[in-house]
Design a protein around this nucleic acid. Structure first.
Lengths: 207, 207
DNA sequence: TATATTTTGTGAATGTGAACACAAGCACAA
DNA sequence: TTGTGCTTGTGTTCACATTCACAAAATATA
């Protein structure tokens, strides 16, 4: 099984495992069993073992997985072994929350730039990041920033994406509640927080 | 096919369709073809048709789907045909962003209450919602609020969830970056915005 | 009425991931 | 060295979701 392609669903779960491993290593552990990790992150043990089996042998039978070795490998697969810079476009309420959000750090993610249209916001500093004018988006190319977060109103999301693609951005995390079209080589992940809430009533009994 | 159970993945896509339908109906259309809707929301047309086929005949061959009828049916399935109230716990940066977020409205969602531990925040008003003390969470039961959004620090996410469950909450949207354990009957959807960003580098070529 | 055109609805094929059970392997103790 | 207990690794089975292709149905046109 060692040389098979890693399924997308497994990739999606890797950050969950990584988070869990980092938090448990804080507690002084050196290794952890699939069962223990499962309890902690809320995924079945056999699912965890299968996922890990896609990229080599990390466990020791009878003992568990070496936390240090495993986290390093997961980081390498996700390309998080080097600091990954990202730019934020749109410093409204949601944008500000993202800028101040702790928790990007543990994945080696660094929000390294922020942009907004509002001239009043440009120049202001949030968390050591100086907000720049959106007209300066093209500078991302020479700054070698390949990832961006879109947190602008729906109406301007597509044009923002266009500008980002033109600036050489390869991956976009889109918080605007709409589909945005990009060239095939660019990866977009869209999150609509209202949409996720909208699914809840379906699953909750009694009206 | 009319009486088959609706797959989970279809349910997850229904809000996307609903969003698309509502925005296109603003443009004065009465009906829309699966092809047109597909272009708009970024899902394949045959996927759309299959999804709709799980719950009855809404399209007219040669014409398309009646937007009005279809949206109503989707809302009914998702139980969004009545206003669904939700409570927010944790009015920090992210919590405030959620409170002021437009876009819950179109799904008939109403953030009807907000709670925080910080006494300085309690009593303040944001978007017509007066922030209450978390010790008042138990009042959710008699207020018949069955959904909640958790936007508190990771360390207190589990105890917050416990309090919510005790208060009769049946569905939780969790923004804290951790797994929270709840009774089986309670549905939890966890969103970790850092995690989604962490997946991007894997898909973007060149480091 | 007949014919062309459009678009839905769906059975079947294909692909993908989850669940399971158990053999293989390691550690530790006697 | 042998046995016991624990945990991984994986082949297999099963369930679900996506994709495809085409018949059926409605409309428009002549």
């Amino acid at each position: 099984m060692r040389y098979k392609r890693i399924p997308d669903e497994t990739i999606r779960r890797l950050p969950i495992y990584l988070r869990g491993l980092l938090f448990t290593s804080e507690q002084g552990r050196q290794s952890i069993s699939s069962q223990k990790l499962a309890d902690f992150v809320g995924v079945n043990p056999w699912q965890i073992r299968k996922d890990f089996s896609y990229f080599g042998d990390f466990g020791t039978r009878g003992v568990g997985y070496n936390i240090e070795k495993l986290s390093k490998q997961i980081k390498r697969i996700l390309k998080l072994d080097v600091v990954q810079k990202a730019a934020l476009v749109g410093v409204g309420n949601l944008g500000s929350a993202i800028l101040t959000h702790p928790g990007f750090g543990i994945y080696g993610l660094d929000i390294a730039a922020a942009f907004d249209v509002n001239p009043k916001k440009v120049g202001r500093k949030i968390e050591n990041i100086t907000i720049e004018n959106v007209s300066k988006l093209w500078t991302l190319k020479k700054r070698k920033i390949k990832h961006a977060i879109i947190a602008v109103p729906r109406q301007v999301a597509q044009e923002t994406a266009n500008a980002l693609v033109k600036a050489g951005v390869k991956g976009i995390l889109n918080f605007s509640p709409c589909h945005i079209a990009v060239p095939q080589k660019v990866k977009v992940i869209t999150i609509d927080i209202a949409m996720d809430l909208a699914c809840l009533p379906y699953y909750t009994p009694g009206s």
